[in-house]
Nucleic acid binder design. Structure first.
Length: 581
RNA sequence: GCACCCAUAGCUCAGCUGGAUAGAGCGUUGCCCUCCGAAGGCAAAGGUCGCACGUUCGAAUCGUGCUGGGUGCACCA
């Protein structure tokens, strides 16, 4: 149930009736008519811009339209008032019974309250993390992982058919470097001293790989040239790295539906087919790129390469798909991979990338739009950096100095719930400060705690009601309570916030912006805490009352808040705790 | 040099895809606990939404041009 959508339907129906009666000209486009919460609560419960958007096409004064509409809306039992205000807004006030009915609806729907048909089952692929399989995940990956996972959950809640996907970059030079690094650890496992040259991965996490290599190959590879062992060592190393990454993801509560391998694209003809397709569209040609402007590298030389015409899509320059020696660049398998996704029938593709991939956006969008003949949209969310703060100091991270913080370190220190929630308290395109001191603090400054605490309070009310008053607080019993007892403006205010939830889900899903859910939950928690605190001064606003009928109604409201918080935390992937310790 | 992102209260940030008097937390100031739901609560002050034009009934939001900050820019993925 979406109260705003319901009232919008009412408004549209009345506008259509006015057209049928000839009060308004026929055939007006009503798609711009919106019913929204007013910014200022003093203006009523809902506002519609109908009169203003229709004034011009109807050739009428906004006021005349608003007056006619107001008269008709007043006949609906849910509508208590309809006032024309400002430049032509129609402000609606709803009868308390409309709000009280919403509490019942929430209790009956459970966490499905707020689910939307917005997506209409359209197939969406969310590709995220896609960290190179050369080491454990670190904090830079964590934000992308959380945002991608929450976005996937949000879209699923909003009625899309969602696939979570990880693209394994196991086809390029970096996995050869991995293999060479692992080989040194293999030598080490056999009692030789490893020579970890500049450019190899020095991390300890490769020691188990060296031991595994020894277990599998014994000493047989030691005196062999690289050409003999490289492929085998690479395969085993990437498998072990991916196993580690999967564990890291699992620790964060992220579960992928599909892992796609770059390497698996080679030798299948998929790359060639994708390039052929682009060639048929006239987007591939042999050519020489201009030297880069601004900075002039000394070693620049003209090279004839196979190029993709991405300038045709607004990119600064065309992009090579083949190196001068004829082998593929990293871009080529990426083209094939996206062609593959298009071929799997997705209607929308979403990629979650680190901000350092910003230069990659235009060419990928170009590829998807060309390969799908504009059928499929690609939205790329760039995730800005996370700055770690500890004791007011920036935690400096450097792979070379070995001081980078792994995702696992982060989870071990503050727990997955805190990591997930905090990573969602910013828009993706804004840098995020992750302050260890703040996020573990139990106070109002800490949004994680604040939202969790609201849910814990709801559960505490339920526990008390059961234990001390022996009330039946099942959702069925609560939904059958006399909700007319919820008449105070403070209580109705909380219900109004609950009414915004389905609307918020749709707004967040339309913009692929899961952070909106986190902010909404904070506001809802704040409203619940506010109502709770008013119980300090005004006994009649306490949730537990001497009269069990009144008590049940108030508990129903608290429970409805708990339901929505659980629904929201479910999208964010954060555990709703029942009790604060 | 080019591209992308950011700029809103002293600080950290929201802001419903163009709506009415721009919001929250922190900080500041002032009130409120012998007891009852204070790991707190109530209230106040605090703004040229970086600047300038433009689009229209209406702009923090859209467009153009600036200014300042970040990131990335030829066979690395």
């Amino acid at each position: 149930m979406n109260l705003f959508a319901n009232i919008r339907e009412l408004v549209v129906a009345e506008l259509e009736a006015l057209m049928a009666e000839g009060v308004l000209p026929k055939g007006l486009d009503l798609s711009g008519v919106a019913v929204e919460p007013p910014r200022d609560a003093g203006h009523g419960d809902m506002a519609t811009n109908a009169a203003m958007v229709l004034a011009k096409p109807a050739g009428m004064a906004p006021r005349a339209i608003a007056d006619a509409l107001a008269g008709r809306l007043m006949e609906d039992p849910r509508v208590a008032g309809a006032d024309v205000a400002g430049p032509g807004f129609l402000n609606l006030r709803l009868e308390p019974v409309a709000w009280q009915g919403l509490v019942r609806a929430i209790l009956l729907d459970g966490t499905a309250y707020g689910r939307s048909q917005l997506g209409q089952g359209r197939k969406v692929n969310v590709e995220f993390v896609s960290a190179n399989p050369t080491g454990p995940m670190h904090v830079a990956h964590a934000r992308g992982a959380v945002v991608g996972d929450a976005l996937a959950a949000l879209l699923s809640y909003a009625g899309y058919d969602v696939t979570r996907e990880y693209y394994i970059n196991d086809g390029g030079g970096q996995v050869d470097v991995l293999a060479r690094s692992a080989f040194e650890r293999y030598r080490e496992a056999n009692g030789l001293s490893p020579e970890i040259a500049e450019g190899l991965y020095p991390g300890d996490y490769l020691i188990p790989v060296g031991m595994a290599l020894k277990a599998k190959y014994g000493t047989s590879l030691l005196d062999q040239p690289e050409s003999v062992w490289l492929a085998d060592v690479r395969t085993l190393s990437t498998e072990m790295m991916m196993a580690m990454i999967r564990e890291d993801l699992a620790a964060l509560g992220v579960k992928m539906d599909v892992y796609s391998s770059e390497k698996a694209l080679y030798g299948t003809g998929q790359i060639e087919a994708a390039i052929e397709r682009l060639k048929a569209l006239g987007l591939i040609y042999q050519g020489v790129l201009e030297p880069p402007k601004g900075k002039a590298p000394d070693d620049w030389e003209a090279r004839e390469q196979t190029l993709f015409r991405s300038t045709q899509f607004g990119d600064d320059q065309d992009r090579p798909v083949q190196k001068s020696d004829g082998s593929w660049t990293y871009f080529a398998p990426d083209i094939a991979y996206h062609y593959n996704k298009v071929g799997r029938g997705f209607d929308e593709l979403i990629n979650i990338f680190g901000a350092d991939h910003s230069g990659y956006v235009k060419r990928l969008k170009a590829v998807v739009s060309a390969l799908s003949e504009n059928r499929v949209t690609l939205d790329i969310k760039l995730i800005q950096l996370v700055k770690l703060l500890k004791g007011g100091q920036i935690v400096k991270m450097s792979k070379r100095a070995g001081t980078f913080v792994t995702l696992r370190d982060l989870i071990d220190e503050v727990g997955p719930d805190v990591v997930r929630f905090v990573m969602l308290t910013r828009k993706n395109d804004v840098a995020l400060d992750f302050d260890f001191d703040k996020v573990t603090e139990q106070s109002k400054d800490n949004p994680v705690f604040y939202v969790q605490y609201a849910n814990a309070r709801v559960n505490s009310i339920l526990r008390k009601a059961r234990a001390e008053a022996s009330l039946d607080v099942s959702d069925a019993a609560l939904s059958a309570s006399h909700l007319s007892h919820l008449a105070h403006e403070a209580e109705l205010g909380v219900i109004k916030k609950l009414a915004e939830w389905p609307r918020l889900v749709e707004i967040a899903a339309k913009g692929n912006e899961p952070h909106r859910v986190a902010f909404y939950l904070y506001e809802l928690a704040s409203d619940l805490h506010g109502l709770w605190n008013r119980g300090n001064d005004d006994d009649s606003l306490r949730f537990l009352q001497p009269d069990s009928a009144i008590s049940t109604a108030k508990i129903a409201l608290a429970r409805a808040v708990g339901v929505v918080i659980c629904a929201g935390l479910g999208i964010l992937g954060v555990t709703p705790v029942e009790e604060m310790r």
